[in-house]
Amino acid sequence: MGEEVLRKIAQARARARVRRHVWPLLHLRPGGFLWLTIAGKRLQGWVVIDMDAPIITAASKKQGVAATWKKSFGFHPLAAWCANSRECLAMLLRAGNAGSNTVGYHIEYRST
């Protein structure tokens, strides 16, 4: 394995170590773990991953920026958030002209 792969593995292990420590502590909160309530129904036992593609504008020419569909200039990253804890799980930096619902990006994202 190359250095880049080993670095990614180390980062993943560090995040997993933090989650193994913090998430059990969340159960000790007065309200318990951060279960979501959607449309009046509590989703106990569900960890929800929210995928989003926000537009981040850039004031100057930077690597990877491009014109967005809103006619601004910047980035259009693909992000994965844990909706329960509002924790950012991962992010893929993409050019501003990247589509928000492009299957190719989701497949690329899943494999990284």
Rank of each mutant, 00 (worst) to 15 (best):
A16R: 11
G32V: 05
G45F: 06
H21Q: 15
R20E: 14
W35A: 01
P24G: 10
V48S: 04
I55N: 00
M51W: 08
G40D: 03
L34T: 12
R20L: 14
H27G: 08
V18G: 06
L28W: 12
V48C: 05
R19C: 08
V48P: 00
I49V: 12
P24N: 09
I38Q: 01
V22Q: 13
R19N: 07
R19Y: 10
R17I: 08
L26T: 03
R42E: 14
K41F: 14
V48N: 03
I38E: 01
P30G: 06
R15Y: 10
P24C: 09
R19E: 09
R17Q: 14
L28C: 14
D50H: 04
W46E: 08
A16V: 08
W46Q: 07
V18R: 13
T57G: 08
I56N: 05
R20F: 10
D50C: 03
V48T: 06
W46A: 08
T37I: 12
F33I: 01
D50M: 03
V18E: 13
V48A: 06
W46I: 10
T57V: 09
L25F: 07
R19P: 02
G45N: 06
V48Y: 02
R20C: 14
P30T: 05
W46Y: 13
L36K: 11
R20D: 13
L28M: 15
I38D: 00
L34R: 12
W46M: 08
R29S: 03
L25H: 11
V18C: 12
T37Y: 03
L25A: 14
D50Y: 04
V18F: 13
A58R: 00
P24E: 07
K41A: 15
I55F: 02
I55D: 01
L43A: 13
G31D: 14
I38N: 00
I55S: 01
L25N: 12
F33H: 03
D52L: 07
I56C: 06
R20S: 14
I38C: 01
V22I: 15
I56R: 07
G40A: 02
P54E: 06
M51H: 09
V48Q: 02
L43E: 14
V22H: 11
W23L: 15
L26A: 05
R29I: 00
G40Q: 04
L26V: 04
W46R: 09
R29A: 03
G32W: 04
V48G: 02
L36R: 13
G31W: 15
V22S: 12
V47H: 04
L43K: 13
W23Y: 15
A39M: 11
P24I: 08
D52K: 04
G40W: 01
A39N: 14
A16I: 10
L34F: 10
G45E: 06
D50T: 03
D52N: 12
W35G: 00
F33L: 03
D50K: 02
G45D: 07
R15P: 00
R42P: 06
A58S: 05
T37A: 07
L28H: 15
Q44E: 15
L28P: 05
P24Q: 10
R29D: 01
G45S: 09
Q44I: 09
W46T: 09
H21T: 15
I49L: 07
H27A: 11
L36D: 10
W23G: 05
P54W: 04
L34Q: 11
W23P: 02
L43F: 15
A53S: 09
R17K: 15
G32K: 04
L25W: 10
G32Y: 03
M51Q: 06
L28Q: 15
D52A: 09
R17F: 13
V47R: 05
L26I: 03
R19I: 07
